[in-house]
């Protein structure tokens, strides 16, 4: 794709829209998450701040904006300030190849999923930087856990996505959606149930969400890699966490749930409905399951998910060869 002025304007507009989506998503998801927590624990959740607590998340972000900027002693200040920004920026790039609608794609590239998987790793680097730079033993331990976990869970995730790529014969996300039908039984979740399950488990592991939130485990590591971050640094980590959740949910919707296709009226609203359904499932998981131990976490990955995903890929390849 050559870079013309029209393309450049398109990408700039897309980036602005994606920033708006990320911020809006964080505000909505904080509210949904706290309400869901309340619902599951039989209490109302945020209620009095705004009508039914709707502006609670805005109040929280404004308060974090007004908190004291704090630099602990003996901190590598460049890395300390770089880490939250680095957690936030790559997510901007990752949303570009996602096909929200048939024509609503910011960057039409032939290997969109490769772009997403390659740059998703930058989020882990920001976690390491945060843990390393803040000169705190809990921060460093949390960062080490984040690395071990993300590296481990990336492999079954890629294997699960690869099985779908085999079926579609393309790395282009729009192409993968086009190969799926409009009805639920024509989606990839029916043809690749195991891959979908493996992808979903690794998605929770990748985004450091409970029950796999070992990098932020409060009971043993205070707050993990963002222990020393107050105010806006913490808010940026929070924002990027929710943006990452949204991204993996969009990838899940695109790969397994038929993307922008639905029973009636294809369009970007179907992508959003499906992605937010996955998000709600993640929130539900968080408030239902207790946190796993670290050895259990890695055992699930290396002993179950990885062999199963390889088996799934192998069977897919053989079946595709026979159908040919």
């Amino acid at each position: 794709m050559e870079l013309t002025i029209a393309n450049f304007v398109q990408i700039v507009i897309a980036c602005l829209l994606i920033i708006a989506l990320m911020v809006g998503n964080a505000v909505i998801m904080v509210y949904i998450e706290r309400k869901a927590a309340g619902f599951i624990q039989r209490r109302p959740g945020p209620y009095e701040v705004g009508p039914r607590g709707t502006i609670q998340a805005i109040c929280d972000s404004m308060k974090l904006l007004g908190k004291q900027l704090f630099i602990p002693g003996n901190v590598d200040w460049l890395l300390y300030f770089l880490a939250p920004v680095m957690a936030f920026l790559p997510v901007l790039l990752l949303f570009l190849p996602i096909p929200f609608g048939k024509y609503l794609v910011a960057l039409k590239v032939d290997d969109g999923i490769l772009l997403i998987l390659a740059f998703a790793g930058l989020g882990v680097i920001s976690n390491i930087l945060a843990g390393w730079a803040s000169n705190n033993k809990y921060g460093l331990l949390g960062a080490a856990r984040a690395v071990a976990q993300s590296v481990a869970y990336e492999i079954p995730m890629i294997m699960a996505l690869l099985a779908v790529v085999f079926m579609a014969g393309s790395l282009n996300l729009s192409e993968i959606v086009e190969r799926q039908g409009t009805w639920p039984w024509q989606w990839n979740i029916v043809f690749q149930p195991l891959a979908c399950f493996i992808y979903f488990v690794s998605l929770v592991g990748e985004t450091n969400r409970a029950p796999f939130d070992l990098p932020e485990a409060e009971s043993e590591l205070t707050a993990g890699f963002h222990t020393e971050y107050s105010g806006m640094g913490f808010a940026l980590f929070f924002l990027s966490e929710y943006a990452n959740m949204l991204l993996v949910s969009f990838v899940c919707a695109t790969f397994f749930l038929g993307g922008y296709k639905g029973p009636i009226l294809d369009g970007f609203w179907w992508t959003f409905i499906k992605a937010y359904a996955v998000m709600c499932l993640i929130v539900w998981l968080r408030w239902t399951f207790p946190r796993v131990r670290f050895d259990q976490l890695l055992n699930i990955n290396w002993k179950w998910l990885l062999p199963l995903s390889i088996l799934n890929l192998w069977v897919t390849a053989i079946v595709l060869k026979f159908i040919e």
Partner: peptide, 10 residues
């Protein structure tokens, strides 16, 4: 927790 729920006031 439930019954008193400080979450109502954020």
């Amino acid at each position: 927790m439930a019954r008193f729920d400080i979450a109502r006031f954020g």
